[in-house]
Design a protein around this nucleic acid. Structure first.
Length: 425
DNA sequence: CCCAGGGATGT
RNA sequence: GGUACAUCCCUGGG
């Protein structure tokens, strides 16, 4: 009995619409980034900057307040502070000499919400501190040059901005979505690709060597150390940034091809206007990812869909019709287990064919709609969702109803980010 | 704006 | 005990 997810929808006001393409980039730079890249001293003395007291203090407080578990050496984050009081000079000396050797990570498997398992590699508390200190500086060097279409793990950017830009593509007329999924991305990151990408902006050999040592530190499995020749362990503070550095190469390639896309970590979607273009892009981008980036495209989870049938970052778009010009006043926050009301789910699925089944959020929206309005079962679902469908109602100019009531996805909790509506022109 | 403590979403 | 990043919300404090 799979519980259905609440439908999240996105509202796009006219005021938002104008500046969607120019989202503010986070200006939260605690240390002057310009100094790091523009002064000659910053280029080869990066490790000194990493080891500065202020940077390390911030890294330590972050590791401490995360209250994370211990690594392979058993040291807890509470013990870390007192350990550093005694051993920091030695650690610092190793870092500056370029001889610091991280310990292997601890393997932990946790279940993913979607059903699979996530392989974690948990570094020791000390290594997490060092990674954090390195990451804080590296982020300031690399983040400004990242693509505007890259939204994951970046300061000043969130899922909302990602979806807003995606919706702008749809509004602009891109009704074909190439949904690309990279299988086991973190576990398959190519070390050499990553290092060469990092070396374009970082010239301190000690820093480069340290990052490579983090990558090849290995993983302890049942008391035995296994080497790691690929992948970046999920669990290190540096991993999210490293993933962006690797996939920055992808962003730049997509930009070079003038494609409209958004990327959030390892998930990205490309918007095009025609089915033919979608198929062409699907093939060529897959080839680029497989051959150039040495990554693997998950063929099963990748494909071409319609904007209102896809699900990205937990959001879906929907197409209002004349019959339902605004989110239907149904409470959908409670999970439902069956379609009920005599609706045949298989009929719903086959309505659009096996290749174009509605995404889970849209599907659950339909289920709820039918549960409360069984008389609607006789109408074509395509007419509710797809303006291009032969029986589709003409889409009218949409106004917010005076009293929408508790709309789909709307909750009492104002902090619930997904509780916004999506309106198409 | 910054710092503690708690919650949620996503990867 | 299950790591990490980002974002948002709440409370308290400077």
């Amino acid at each position: 009995m799979a519980l259905l997810q609440p439908l999240k929808q996105l509202k796009l006001n006219a005021s938002h619409r104008s500046d969607v393409y120019s989202q503010p980039v986070g200006s939260s730079e605690r240390v002057t980034a310009a100094y790091l890249t523009e002064t000659p001293a910053g280029k080869d003395r990066l490790m000194e900057i990493i080891c500065e007291r202020q940077n390390l203090g911030r890294a330590l407080s972050r590791v401490r307040t995360n209250h994370g578990a211990a690594g392979i050496d058993g040291m807890t984050v509470d013990q870390l502070t007192s350990y550093l009081r005694q051993h920091w000079p030695k650690v610092r000396a190793d870092l500056l000499a370029g001889t610091y050797q991280p310990l292997p990570v601890r393997r932990k498997e946790i279940p993913k919400p979607s059903g699979g398992v996530r392989l974690l590699g948990i570094p020791t508390a000390l290594d997490r501190l060092v990674q954090q200190a390195v990451g804080q500086i590296l982020q300031q060097i690399r983040d400004p040059s990242f693509s505007a279409s890259s939204y994951g793990f970046r300061p000043g950017r969130n899922q909302h901005q990602t979806i807003q830009r995606a919706q702008q593509y749809v509004v602009d007329g891109c009704r074909q979505v190439v949904d690309m999924d990279l299988s086991k991305f973190f576990d398959r990151v190519n070390h050499d690709r990553l290092m060469s990408r990092l070396a374009t902006k970082v010239h301190d050999k000690r820093v480069l060597k340290l990052v490579r040592r983090f990558l090849t530190a290995g993983v302890m499995v049942g008391g035995l150390q296994e080497p790691s020749h690929e992948g970046t362990h999920q669990g290190g503070p540096l991993s999210p940034l490293l993933s962006n550095i690797v996939l920055d190469e992808l962003d730049k390639e997509l930009e070079k091809r003038a494609l409209r896309f958004v990327r959030y970590a390892d998930g990205f979607i490309i918007f095009v206007r025609s089915k033919r273009a979608a198929e062409r892009v699907m093939v060529s981008v897959s080839r680029f990812v497989n051959q150039r980036l040495r990554l693997k495209v998950n063929q099963e989870k990748s494909g071409i869909t319609h904007p209102w049938w896809m699900c990205f970052l937990g959001f879906s778009f929907y197409q209002p019709s004349r019959r339902y010009p605004y989110p239907h006043p149904l409470q959908i926050d409670q999970p439902v287990q069956t379609a009920g009301a005599g609706t045949d789910q298989s009929q719903l699925w086959t309505e659009h064919g096996a290749d174009h089944r509605p995404s889970q959020p849209v599907f659950s929206w339909l289920v709820e709609l039918l549960r409360h309005n069984p008389e609607l079962a006789q109408f074509s679902f395509a007419s509710l969702l797809d303006p291009a469908a032969p029986s589709g109602d003409p889409v009218e100019t949409l106004e917010e109803p005076e009293n929408p009531g508790p709309g789909i996805g709307e909750t009492e909790d104002p902090s619930y980010q997904g509780a916004v509506y999506g309106l198409f022109p």
